[in-house]
Design a protein around this nucleic acid. Structure first.
Lengths: 291, 291
DNA sequence: CGAATTATCTGAGATTAGTCAGACAAGATG
DNA sequence: CATCTTGTCTGACTAATCTCAGATAATTCG
């Protein structure tokens, strides 16, 4: 009864009774579940019908009828797609947006009830949930370039500083460190990449350039819930690739001796240790890689 | 996007796409989901119809029709209950058992696919799943008396020894310790209680008696996935209650200084520290409580 | 350009799920 | 014993979900 498969099936039972209730928040607004699900999947920003069908796994006939129903209710409008006249785009009307928000509120309320239920253990449960979310969704993690001042980027940076403060023997104070200039982290000089899963930021890395062929890797961070799935490696690979696109031929970085996993990663991916190339207060090791 | 409620909803989405597939393993054998669910809930040992209805939340009319359908297929038989002629008991036929096993195999196969998916991270994911399972199901944990040699009891004891070996500075060897006699842990002298959630053992505690009014608490253990939900306290309460039923008026216990949470629990639940009452090799503290 | 492909829509129909009211027999209660 | 309650069954009905075969229009490809 305690082998891996039993554990998964037991988990499934537990989750489908308690969390499965979240799906039922689609009910209770005088609309069948199918229609409600379509409406909420369309979302406030609208969606292409064929993608909706794939996402929900519905037959084209059924899909069509559900959309018609929502249209009759005045909740959505459908218009042909600009690029491809065969496709149709479904967009919520004002009334439709209100309905979506109402469903959202219901869903939030149910989610809140799960938190009440778990009481003092809620943080432990949320962490476990995050782990499962990222492990199951790891193949859907997207790495894309962000301006370092977008909310997601700021979030990553803040958590990065928090992590350093916790892990460095001497603590960490941003003001004491060589904080890179924003323009050095944005094209054409450099880049700032953020890994997200369904909109939630899970990690980041910066390429700090000065216009020359030499640049630095800065601010490599991975969320605790995403550790152990090789995300740091993917971020570094993406950063090196992007740097190469920007015409950079040599990358350097400095790191603290406390960040052992990072050091191991650099060593195993073609970086070699070099002499100190700066006087960064918190650095113990310096690495270089030719692209 | 990173508040508690969003985290739960994101988790819900991740789980309902990947794990929700487990429910659909009820499909694919030419039988509607409702009927399959009833059949699998009946199980190989059979079930009373009214309990099935409660469990699955079905209308009595629908239930009746589904059962008739399964009966027509030759998968189950229904007979009036011995004790109460109004109730009916549904039992699977030989063919029914085969079907149940086939559904089980399908479900296991899907669960296995989730494991493949998560690859190297599977142990981390399973641990996170266990945590969620126990937190969500904590109100359904049952504490009952077991003979110390049943598989569940043995499992708990083995894990208890493993834990001690890890946590004691000096390691732990059962042979070096005062291992209680089986008969001292079974009624009428004593008792061995196991906490289970849906059949999975999560914790244990023993009352070791010698027929007198004085007995000892032994082998208090809680599974890692069930820590932090107050299970140790519930086990101790149950043990004290059972001891009282057995005519015991004073309980004693010894413990190692490394088990700080246990010591804190004893101190906060009416136990007071006393002088050593034995020469247990691994003990540093001795407690007593009058019931 | 004509043929094949793709995305959506429509009609017709079947299956599944769920509700309600009433019938009936076994058991509980006074 | 009469009455009430409980557990199951049945018929009649509705709503929701799903499937299939073709129709239609936009796009792609040789």
């Amino acid at each position: 009864m305690t082998d891996a498969i039993s554990r998964i099936r037991r988990f499934n039972r537990a989750v489908s009774t308690e969390i499965g209730a979240l799906d039922h928040s689609y009910l209770g607004r005088g609309r069948p579940l199918g229609a409600a699900r379509v409406l909420c999947t369309i979302g406030e920003s609208g969606a292409v019908v064929s993608e909706l069908r794939d996402l929900l796994g519905l037959d084209s006939g059924l899909m069509s009828r559900l959309l018609r129903g929502l249209e009759d209710e005045g909740l959505i409008t459908t218009t042909p797609c600009d690029q491809d006249g065969r496709r149709r785009v479904a967009r919520p009307t004002e009334a439709g947006c209100a309905e979506i928000l109402a469903y959202d509120a219901l869903s939030n309320e149910r989610a809140g009830r799960i938190l009440d239920l778990s009481g003092a253990q809620s943080e432990a449960m949320l962490e476990a949930m995050d782990r499962i979310t990222t492990i199951l969704g790891q193949h859907r993690i997207e790495i894309s370039e962000h301006h370092p001042e977008t909310p997601d980027a700021r979030h990553c940076l803040q958590r990065y500083y928090d992590t350093l403060a916790r892990r460095f023997e001497t603590g960490f104070d941003v003001a004491q460190s060589r904080d890179p200039d924003i323009t050095d982290l944005t094209p054409p000089r450099g880049s700032f990449l953020v890994a997200t899963l369904e909109g939630a930021p899970l990690g980041c890395v910066g390429v700090k350039g000065d216009g020359s062929e030499l640049a630095e890797i800065k601010r490599l961070w991975v969320a605790p819930s995403a550790r152990g799935i090789g995300l740091a490696g993917k971020l570094m690979q993406a950063a090196e690739h992007r740097a190469s696109d920007l015409g950079i031929t040599t990358l350097r970085l400095d790191t603290n001796k406390a960040l052992t996993e990072a050091i191991a990663l650099y060593r195993s991916t073609g970086w070699h240790e070099i002499d100190a190339f700066n006087t960064e207060r918190y650095a113990h090791h310096w690495f270089e890689k030719h692209l």
